[in-house]
Each structure stands twice: as structure tokens, then as C-alpha cells.
């Protein structure tokens, strides 16, 4: 077993884990933060995307022990209480989700996208940047709209990632 400490959504957490524990398992099973999902085994689908030290990573392809000392933000840490992050609000407003399973990863990827690429995102850029996130429900049409609108809203509220 290995000891691991990190800051998750602004709170310090520690755990004693088998080294083979993935970050996503640590979040879901140890911390019961079940908003981060697992949709594949090959690092393709992106349902597990969280931010580690401000950058989007696939938590199914990251060891928990590798995140010792890191700042982690999950979908649960994005809203400020009941006040949604602009990207979350945009997904609701533009019907960017159906079953909701890929949604946490989509939103975390979208926020990271805006942090890196700015708030004026054209459709082509958004579609390319979503390469690592698979959705089976929406056909992406409304996700693309939601990301574009969410990016604009993030700019107008001056918001980057919450809770960092």
C-alpha cells in the first residue's frame, strides 16, 4: 500500500492505496466522487477527464500515487454551490447532454479547451479539440453549440476553472 495526499476540489485528502489504484478509482471509490466516469479501458472515451494542476487529464490513465501533492478538480468542484459554472450552464441551455454519462468529461474538457484556446472557438476547433471525448447520444451537434456558448460566457464572467 502507498500513502497519497492531494487537494481535490479545494479540500485536502489522503488515502492509503494499492499502487495500481487509478486516479479515477481513488476519486470514485475512496472519495465517493462518482461524477467522474469510466467509459472505456483504452484511454479513448474521455468520460473520466478531470483537471490535475489545472490541466485536463484522463483519470483512468493516471495513477493515484502519481498525483501525490497535486491539485485535482472534478466535475463536482466546478459549480460554486448551486451557481453553475458557465460551461455547465451552457450544456443545459443548449441541450448538450442526453444520458449524461459522458457529460462530466465533456465539460471538464471544454473548460480546459477554453483555458488553452480562448473564448472565441469556431466549430472546427471545437470538434477537433473534442477528439478524446466520445458521446453516443447527442451526435455532438448540441455539444459543439454548448462549448461555443460556454466559452463566450466564461469570457464575459472572467471565469477560468472554479475552485483552484
Amino acid at each position: 500500500m502507498a500513502s497519497v495526499s492531494m487537494t481535490v476540489n479545494g479540500k485536502s485528502v489522503t488515502g492509503n492505496v494499492d499502487p495500481r489504484t487509478l486516479l479515477v478509482q481513488f476519486l470514485r471509490e475512496n472519495l465517493r466522487l462518482t461524477g467522474t466516469h469510466v467509459g472505456c479501458d483504452t484511454s479513448q472515451c474521455g468520460a473520466c477527464v478531470v483537471h490535475v494542476d489545472g490541466r485536463a487529464v484522463k483519470s483512468c490513465t493516471t495513477l493515484a500515487v502519481s498525483c501525490d501533492g497535486a491539485h485535482v478538480t472534478t466535475i463536482e468542484g466546478l459549480a460554486n454551490g448551486t451557481e453553475l459554472h458557465p460551461m455547465q450552464a451552457a450544456f443545459r441551455e443548449h441541450h448538450g447532454l442526453q444520458c449524461g454519462f459522458c457529460t462530466p468529461g465533456m465539460i471538464m474538457t471544454a473548460v480546459d479547451m477554453v483555458n488553452r484556446k480562448g473564448s472565441n472557438l469556431d466549430e472546427h476547433t471545437i470538434r477537433e479539440e473534442l477528439e478524446g471525448n466520445i458521446c453516443r447520444c447527442t451526435g455532438y451537434h448540441n455539444i459543439v453549440k454548448a462549448v461555443a456558448a460556454g466559452a463566450q460566457a466564461m469570457a464575459s464572467t472572467g471565469q477560468k476553472v472554479a475552485a483552484e
Binding site: R28, R32, L33, T34, G35, T36, H37, V38, T74, I75, E76, L78, A79, L84, Q88, F91, R92, E93, H95, L97, G100, F101, T103, P104, I107
Partner: peptide, 21 residues
């Protein structure tokens, strides 16, 4: 009408089977 169920999904509060312990 915007979806009533979305709030829990966009905040990571959905309860899928694997979330149940």
C-alpha cells in the same frame, strides 16, 4: 423547455448503477 434532469448530470450528481454501493 430546458431539461429538469440536467442539473444532476452537469454537476456530477447523477446516480448510475456503478455509483451505487
Amino acid at each position: 423547455v430546458r431539461r429538469k434532469e440536467d442539473f444532476r448530470f452537469i454537476t456530477g450528481k447523477g446516480q448510475y448503477t456503478d455509483d451505487i454501493n
